[in-house]
């Protein structure tokens, strides 16, 4: 008699526990609009989607309005990169006063092998490169993922000399 009572008790408990779980599902079914967490993606993406400012999307070499960048072609980022995604190609030029100088020719960025580990930017002593929070980077051909970051005709931004800073 007691075992029968326990059996019935267990069945009742089972149904109550299932009903409790279903109640939660029912609650979300009714209040779905209030707790909606999915975001519409391809449409309205410029207005509703907010990408975090620090999101690591791709490495960029910022240029100012005079088409000048800060990269001195020291290749520290190339050394710091764990998977050879960065290739710095430099060239020798002669300055006006006859001195030979090494300047940046091509800043080649292989986005296809980049793992966004931030070590190149961490290693850069000039703060010349940055991470941009762009995220729609896919293309159909992986050869198109090799970028040259310095713009054509760009040159190194001259640092103000000590005299200019004082004046």
């Amino acid at each position: 008699m007691k075992s029968l009572f326990n059996y019935i008790k267990e069945v009742v408990y089972a149904f109550v526990s299932l009903a409790k779980g279903l109640l939660l599902t029912l609650r979300y079914f009714v209040t779905i609009r209030k707790v909606n967490i999915t975001e519409e993606y391809p449409n309205n993406r410029t207005t509703t989607i907010s990408v975090k400012e620090r999101f690591y999307g791709e490495v960029v070499l910022p240029h100012d309005e005079n088409n000048e960048h800060k990269c001195t072609a020291c290749t520290l980022c190339q050394i710091a990169c764990p998977n050879n995604s960065i290739q710095i190609i430099s060239k020798q030029i002669e300055t006006e006063d006859g001195k030979k100088k090494r300047v940046l020719d091509k800043w080649v960025y292989h986005l296809d092998s980049c793992t966004f580990c931030y070590q190149c930017i961490d290693a850069c002593p000039q703060d010349a490169i940055e991470m941009k929070n762009s995220f729609e980077l896919s293309v159909y051909d992986r050869t198109k993922l090799i970028y040259q970051l310095n713009r054509p005709g760009s040159k190194l931004k001259e640092k103000p000399t000590v005299k200019e800073q004082q004046s």
Partner: peptide, 15 residues
Amino acid sequence: LEIFEANTGNRLTMN
């Protein structure tokens, strides 16, 4: 993960 993304830049493999 949103907190991770905002502070570390990555969501899964942060370094």
